[in-house]
């Protein structure tokens, strides 16, 4: 009896659903955070500084970038400004996410907003139903915990991790993105078109060196998301004309 009710609760509770949804992110963050912690140590940061950066900034790309800039003795305002530029794309993510989450008190949304990353966004955004606040808390808490915890472990464990393991783990986040995308692609031409087009634009921008990685992702996403609406609009109009 108890097991049964416990099971029913597990399915119904959005917080637990969020935790489950975040497990793959937690796994995916492991190698990235371990590597971050390890590089932070070689850069000369203390354990406290390393973990604090993960706790307060919580953005993989900009943390790596900051380490690189610290080691090159670049000034802190330049580091902060570059962080801002790299992370502006979160505006796009949270504006999009806002279409999918349930309405709630601004202070609650302001708290889980801290946990919105490319990865938590992707997992949340491909869910079929409207997202509960509890779900967002579960999802973001497990991903955040993994990031902070493994940053510290990476600092302490350093290079003692087996190389083969590290190499294989490097696919984790990409495997997760693919695992999120492919089921949505099945039988949905719009999704296929959106993903392929954005992948092509992003490859073009990055490999040509025309744009930095952050801007490239933003721009290729916006171009594809807009272009498909234009195409849908034109085809609809053409259809209407033919009908008349």
């Amino acid at each position: 009896m108890e097991i049964q009710s416990g099971f029913a609760e597990k399915i119904a509770d959005p917080f637990k659903q969020g935790l489950q949804g975040g497990i793959s992110i937690a796994i995916g963050y492991m190698p990235v955070a371990l590597t971050y912690g390890f590089i932070a140590k070689t850069t000369g940061l203390s354990l406290l500084e390393t973990v604090l950066m993960s706790m307060i900034v919580y953005a993989g790309a900009s943390q790596y970038m900051a380490l690189d800039m610290i080691s090159k003795q670049i000034g802190m305002f330049e580091i902060i400004f570059t962080t801002f530029i790299v992370n502006i794309r979160h505006l796009l993510l949270t504006a999009s996410l806002n279409e999918k989450v349930e309405q709630d008190k601004p202070w609650k949304k302001a708290i889980y907003a801290f946990g919105v990353t490319d990865e938590t966004f992707s997992v949340a955004a491909v869910q079929k139903e409207k997202l509960k606040t509890g779900y967002m808390f579960g999802l973001t808490i497990i991903a955040y915990s993994s990031w902070v915890l493994f940053s510290g472990i990476g600092y302490l464990a350093g290079s003692s991790l087996p190389g083969l393991f590290q190499e294989g783990m490097s696919i984790a986040l990409y495997a997760m993105f693919i695992g999120l995308l492919v089921p949505s692609m099945k039988g949905n031409k719009k999704v296929i078109f959106l993903a392929v087009l954005a992948a092509l634009f992003n490859s073009l921008f990055v490999i040509s060196g025309a744009l930095s990685a952050g801007w490239s992702i933003v721009l290729s996403t916006l171009i594809s998301a807009t272009l498909i609406e234009v195409i849908v609009f034109l085809r609809k109009r053409k259809g209407d004309c033919a009908g008349e």
Binding site: E99, S122, A195, A198
Partner: peptide, 19 residues
Amino acid sequence: NILQNVPFAILGALIFPGV
């Protein structure tokens, strides 16, 4: 509509060419 397209587009861009 554009914002609702963002998740699928960004997944494509996050995978390629990074992988």
